[in-house]
Design a protein around this nucleic acid. Structure first.
Lengths: 210, 210
DNA sequence: GCGCGAAGTGGAACGCGTTCCTATTATGGA
DNA sequence: TCCATAATAGGAACGCGTTCCACTTCGCGC
């Protein structure tokens, strides 16, 4: 469905660009800000649609016009945060002599950012895990940010639009998978932050041993 | 929490063994059967607590007495299915000359079993992803089955209670993670069954190249 | 057999995601 | 400027997970 980035016409969130008026872009921003704020305070359960609407100063119906479900809303918020993180990393060199070290460092940075706000992380991860194909567009954007950050770590001096080798793509995917699983383990209280970090480190070392 | 297998006293599902009377064990079985049946027909959404109660011929309150939430219910059902699969594999030799081949084969078997019943898989995976620490006991059992099956594939001639090397444990965990992520991707409609199979195969080959 | 506490029944009620409807307000073209 | 149309407000209503409660039945020591 939608093969390569081009979304089908299924119920999508209104993206920032296709919003005509300034007022609308601001509404959208207010909604996402409210979402992040509530998630940050109380996690997934605290992001209640009525509460988001009220805090963003929009009607419930309007909220649903912008984001067709709580999941879309949270995944979109996650996307915005990831893009922020990705943008923040671009430019700055990543510390580490080998690809493995750099990948571990970047994931640590990300994790620290996330674990510094456990409730937010819980909310966003839960949403990501629960999303179905109707949120494919939003999820794809998150995946792109992730890939971008990891490629950047593996080949720091690569040009912006350049592509990874097939093997590197495969490795990137696996690392992303492990990271996601580890995050789920942490979010669901199955493993500690230290376990999580370790789990990722072990996986990266197994995969990037050259 | 509950470090190694010994559960804390948090809200647990009533396990099969600690159920005194035969009538109770049968009630529990009826409930899990109803759960699997409903999940198999219509997936996560079709497993409605009222419907489960009715089909299992049990009052709603009783259902909640046995399983404190829909998540506990589904994860317990998943646990039963995994243990069934694990038990079914024991004894039978796994085809494949190398550890990698055997692991891939066993995962294919599992996936085929699961993908043969997409709705059921969707329901169980969703539940697993959404479970929090209060379902730690049930989740732990699923993890044990998974580990058992994978160890069996890596070292087919190993004694029952024997333990894997540290490296093998790490590899097992990573494979489990990838499998879970791939499954989530498939369940949420982000990737096809073929993609999923391929994703796992690539990961296993990356990890078990000796 | 009797009584008592635990377990089960049946159903009302509550919370939150979601849908829907009507009234009001912005917006942009003739 | 005025009007048609879309967008928003405000809020009622519905579905399903979950909780609660009054009542009945079961199991077991006396």
């Amino acid at each position: 469905m939608g093969e390569d980035g081009v979304p089908l016409s299924t119920a999508n969130s209104l993206t920032a660009d296709e919003l005509g008026s300034t007022a609308q872009r601001e509404r959208r921003k207010r909604i996402l800000d409210a979402t992040i704020a509530l998630a940050s305070e109380g996690g997934f359960d605290a992001v209640q649609m009525r509460a988001v609407a009220e805090q963003a100063d929009v009607a419930l119906g309007t909220l649903y016009r912008y984001f067709p479900s709580k999941i879309h809303l949270l995944v979109s918020a996650l996307g915005r945060e990831f893009e922020k993180a990705d943008a923040g990393m671009r430019g700055k060199p990543i510390p580490g002599d080998t690809a493995a070290e750099r990948v571990i460092n970047i994931l640590k940075l990300l994790s620290r950012g996330l674990q510094g706000d456990p409730h937010l992380t819980e909310a966003l991860t839960r949403a990501f895990m629960f999303a179905d194909s109707s949120a494919a567009t939003e999820i794809h954007r998150v995946g792109m940010s992730m890939t971008s950050m990891l490629s950047h770590a593996i080949h720091p001096d690569m040009a912006e639009g350049a592509e990874l080798s097939e093997d590197d793509v495969a490795i990137t995917k696996v690392i992303g998978d492990v990271w996601l699983s580890a995050l789920v383990g942490w979010v669901t209280g199955r493993s500690s932050a230290a376990d999580t970090a370790n789990q990722i480190e072990v996986a990266v070392k197994l995969l990037l041993r050259d």
